[in-house]
C-alpha cells in the first residue's frame, strides 16, 4: 500500500517542465539535478514534496524528450507513483524501467493536497480526504514483470534477456 499527499498538475506537463534542458550540465550530478524537479511547472514543489507523495496530473503527462532523467528526478524526490489521465509513450516506458509506477485513471476528482492510498495489486486509489475510490487501468503484462523486478536494469541483470 502506498500512502501520501497529492500534488496536482494540469494537462501537458512536458519533460521540459520536469527537468529543463538548461540544467543538462547537471545530468551527471543527480542530487543537484533533482533539486530542480518540476520547477517550471511549480517552483515550490521540490521544497514541499515528501517521501511517498503522489504526482496527480491531467492528460499527456511527460510528453517531449526521451530523457530518462525526468522520471528519475521525480523518483529521487520521493514520489511513489504518478497518477494521470494519460501519459506520453516514452515517459511511461521510462518510469516503469526505473520501477516508478504510472497509473492511468480519471484524476479530475482528486484535489491538490488530498491524502491518497494506492493499492497497486488491487488496482485501487482511495482518496482519504474525499472518501472517493478510483480504479486504474491495468499495466501491460510485459511492463508489470519489469516493474516487479524494480526496473529494467535489475530485470536484465537477473534474467540476462527479455522473458516475455
Amino acid at each position: 500500500m502506498l500512502r501520501g499527499k497529492a500534488f496536482k498538475f494540469g494537462d501537458g506537463i512536458s519533460t521540459d517542465h520536469i527537468i529543463p534542458g538548461r540544467h543538462a550540465h547537471l545530468r551527471s550530478n543527480l542530487p543537484e539535478l533533482a533539486k530542480h524537479v518540476l520547477e517550471d511547472a511549480d517552483p515550490t514543489f521540490v521544497s514541499r514534496v515528501k517521501e511517498g507523495d503522489f504526482i496527480v496530473a491531467g492528460n499527456n503527462f511527460g510528453l517531449g524528450s526521451s530523457r530518462e532523467h525526468a522520471p528519475l528526478v521525480i523518483k529521487m524526490a520521493g514520489v511513489s507513483a504518478i497518477l494521470a489521465k494519460s501519459v506520453a509513450r516514452i515517459f511511461f516506458r521510462n518510469a516503469i524501467n526505473l520501477g516508478l509506477p504510472v497509473l492511468i485513471c480519471d484524476t479530475d476528482g482528486i484535489n491538490d493536497g488530498d491524502e491518497l492510498e494506492v493499492d497497486l495489486s488491487a488496482g485501487i486509489v482511495k482518496d482519504v480526504t474525499s472518501g472517493q475510490k478510483l480504479t486504474f487501468g491495468k499495466i501491460p503484462q510485459v511492463m508489470l514483470r519489469i516493474l516487479d523486478e524494480g526496473g529494467l536494469i535489475p530485470y536484465i541483470k537477473k534474467h540476462g534477456d527479455f522473458k516475455l
Binding site: 526521451s66 530523457r67 530518462e68 522520471p71 516514452i90 516506458r93 521510462n94 524501467n97 526505473l98 526496473g151 529494467l152 536494469i153 536484465i156
Partner: peptide, 10 residues
C-alpha cells in the same frame, strides 16, 4: 523510435 537510457542500454 526514441526510448530512454535504460531501454537503449539494453
Amino acid at each position: 523510435t526514441g526510448m530512454g537510457s535504460s531501454d537503449v542500454a539494453v
